[in-house]
Write a protein that binds this DNA or RNA. Structure first.
Lengths: 158, 158
DNA sequence: TTCTAGTATATTGTACGCAATTAATTAGTT
DNA sequence: AACTAATTAATTGCGTACAATATACTAGAA
């Protein structure tokens, strides 16, 4: 199987465009969420819980694509800040149920309206926004289904 | 100024699509680069250096969008692995010049052909790939120019 | 030349992100 | 009931990211 000898330039890489865009969004949300002392991963955790609370750590992780290694300390910090509550399930003590606190329930409209106002700064109309999101989702789906292990590396060991 | 009351759903957020796509790409490259024991940020550092070596830490950082807080330890690890060399500039001892090692120069074609083979697994034709990249770059540019600090938060302190 | 302002890198502290392992609990088999 | 396999969280270890600070050096003004 002949391999491509094509040159690889940083600014032409889709991965680098995504990497950069993601970091910019992180910075954007860090500022937008600063009044609430929330980080971006904490915010998407709240988004998931606002849609469905309570959830087990595993369920929550399947929504935000994070495992317990990330979620356990994150949720402990959110509990300390009063956003969520963590309770072992009485029926199945392996599970921990994560539920919204009253503070989180009350803050939802305030946070939504502030984030929506910040988002309007992007100056993207709804169609462009949706089209961009679907394009990114399409790429994400392709990446998900690609497994580099299928390409066995035969070259020298470096 | 009336703020939008629009609901915010996780799966409709562009930020979350980018966040997910970026993590998938990270995983993809982790596997693709495993034979070379390179992480993704180390790989883009090499890409920048293959285009232009040597560079100071600051110059390198402006290409990959990372500051010394990230680059200094990353470059030390890459030096330990034999990918780069770090030398204080004789003329201006504040600067540290980062240059490719012989190993990195030699490995370039091998890594390029292996990464290109892995990329072919995505099954994206060149036009789709380029269009997707430009769409993401366009969004990144918009985000860059938006400053949430311009939206002053008037609500209750949480 | 000496003081000061500016610049480049390094360090510190906090928070992810994830692979790998561990510990606790539950379910299934005999 | 006793043993085994599977499941769920928590923990550990490593590597980013980045704000804020510290340190070392250079350049410019008086």
């Amino acid at each position: 199987m002949a391999s491509s000898n094509k040159n690889i330039l940083l600014d032409e890489q889709l991965c680098f465009a995504l990497y950069t865009a993601n970091k910019r969004f992180n910075h954007f949300y860090a500022e937008a969420l600063a009044p609430f002392k929330l980080t971006y991963p904490q915010y998407i955790t709240l988004l998931a819980l606002w849609e469905n609370s309570p959830m087990t750590v595993r369920e929550l992780g399947s929504h935000v694509n994070l495992d317990s290694g990330t979620l356990t300390p994150l949720l402990k910090r959110m509990q300390t800040q009063g956003w969520v509550e963590r309770k072992r399930d009485a029926a199945d003590e392996r599970q921990v149920n994560i539920s919204l606190s009253q503070k989180a329930i009350d803050a939802k409209p305030t946070i939504f309206s502030h984030v929506n106002e910040c988002m309007s700064l992007l100056g993207m109309d709804e169609q462009t926004y949706n089209a961009t999101r679907e394009t990114v989702k399409f790429a994400a789906e392709r990446i998900k289904n690609a497994d580099p292990k299928k390409v066995d590396y035969q070259g020298p060991k470096l």
